[in-house]
C-alpha cells in the first residue's frame, strides 16, 4: 500500500466507516422486524404458552451465518457481474438486488414453516404480515447489503486488500451479523418484548412467552417494533459496526509499515485492552448505580 497517498487512505477509511455505520443500523432494524436472533426464542415460545401473536417470526439462522450469506452472495454476484465487464457500481447494485430477493424468499419460507409447525397451539398464518413485513425487511436488507458490499469493494480496490471480494464479504458479513445481534437485539428482546414487566425484573419463568402483543391502539405487529428499535438499537448497532470497521482499517493503514506488519498487530492488541478496560469500568459503574439483584421478596406483592 506504500504507493497510495496516506490522505487518500484515511479518506477511504472514513468512508468505509460511514458505510458500515449505515449498514449496522439497517441490519439491526431488519432483524428486529423479523424477530431474528435472540428475541426469536420468545416469539417462538409465545404461542406454546397460549399467547397467540401477530409478530413476524423470521428465523433463518443466527444472524452471523445469515448475514454471512447475504453479504458473501452480494459480493460474489457483484464480482461475477464485474467479470462480465459490467460497470462496478451497476454490478454492486444488481448483485445486492438479487441477494435481497434471496433474503425475501428465505424470510417467507421461514415464517410459513415456523408458523405452520405451531398449528397445535392455534397460531394462525397471517398473510398480511407476510405481505407487509417481508417487503420492509427486504428494503432494510438491501440498504445493509449494499453498504457492506460497497465497503468491501472500497477495501479491495482503493486500499488494495489482497482478499477477493467474496471472501471480504464473508468476513465482514459475519462481523456485521454479530455486531447487530450483540448490540441492537437485546434492546428489542429485553425492553420491547417485556415492556409490561417491572423494570429490572428480568424474565421469570412465569412470564416466559408473555410478550407484548397489543399496541397503544389495536394489535402490535413487527413494524411497530421496527419503529421502536430504529430510534436507539439501530444506531447503536451502526456505531458498533462502524467503529469496528473504522478502527480496524485505521490501525492497519497507519501502523502496518512498522516492524513488517507487527506494528498493526501490537496496536490491535493495545486497542482490545483499552476497550476491555472501558467495558469493565462501565459494568462496575452500572452495578454500583443500578444495584445488585436484591431480595426478590420485595417484588412478591405484584
Amino acid at each position: 500500500m506504500a504507493d497510495i497517498p496516506l490522505v487518500f487512505e484515511i479518506g477511504i477509511t472514513a468512508m468505509a466507516g460511514a458505510l458500515a455505520t449505515i449498514a449496522g443500523a439497517a441490519e439491526d432494524v431488519e432483524s428486529d422486524i423479523g424477530s431474528q436472533g435472540d428475541p426469536n426464542s420468545q416469539v417462538q415460545l409465545a404461542p406454546q404458552m397460549g399467547y397467540i401473536h401477530r409478530i413476524f417470526n423470521k428465523a433463518i439462522a443466527g444472524e452471523p451465518p445469515a448475514w454471512g450469506l447475504w453479504i458473501t452472495l452480494g459480493a460474489g454476484l457483484a464480482w461475477a457481474f464485474m467479470a462480465m465487464s459490467m460497470n462496478p457500481i451497476l454490478a454492486i447494485i444488481l448483485g445486492c438486488g438479487i441477494t435481497t430477493f434471496v433474503q425475501g424468499v428465505y424470510s417467507t419460507t421461514a415464517y410459513l414453516g415456523r408458523t405452520a409447525s405451531l398449528a397445535k397451539f392455534g397460531q394462525p398464518v397471517y398473510i398480511d404480515i407476510l405481505k407487509s413485513m417481508t417487503t420492509v425487511t427486504m428494503a432494510h436488507a438491501f440498504v445493509a447489503i449494499f453498504a457492506t458490499v460497497s465497503m468491501c469493494f472500497l477495501i479491495n480496490t482503493a486500499l488494495g486488500h489482497p482478499f477477493p471480494l467474496p471472501l471480504l464479504g464473508l468476513v465482514w458479513g459475519i462481523a456485521l451479523g454479530a455486531a447487530g445481534s450483540a448490540t441492537g437485539n437485546p434492546y428489542y428482546g429485553k425492553e420491547r418484548q417485556y415492556q409490561t414487566q417491572k423494570f429490572g425484573a428480568g424474565v421469570p419463568i412465569a412470564a416466559s412467552g408473555n410478550i407484548v402483543r397489543y399496541a397503544e391502539a389495536g394489535e402490535r405487529n413487527s413494524l411497530d417494533n421496527g419503529f421502536f428499535t430504529a430510534k436507539l438499537a439501530g444506531p447503536a448497532s451502526g456505531v458498533c459496526f462502524g467503529l469496528i470497521v473504522f478502527l480496524e482499517i485505521w490501525r492497519t493503514i497507519l501502523f502496518e509499515p512498522i516492524g513488517a506488519g507487527w506494528g498493526a498487530i501490537v496496536v490491535g492488541v493495545i486497542m482490545i485492552i483499552i476497550f476491555a478496560a472501558i467495558d469493565r469500568y462501565i459494568e462496575v459503574w452500572a452495578r454500583k448505580n443500578y444495584g445488585p439483584y436484591t431480595a426478590p421478596v420485595a417484588e412478591a406483592s405484584s
Binding site: 392455534g122 398464518v125 398480511d128
Partner: peptide, 8 residues
C-alpha cells in the same frame, strides 16, 4: 398444515 390461513 397451518392452524388457519388469515388475511388482516
Amino acid at each position: 398444515d397451518a392452524a388457519a390461513w388469515l388475511d388482516s
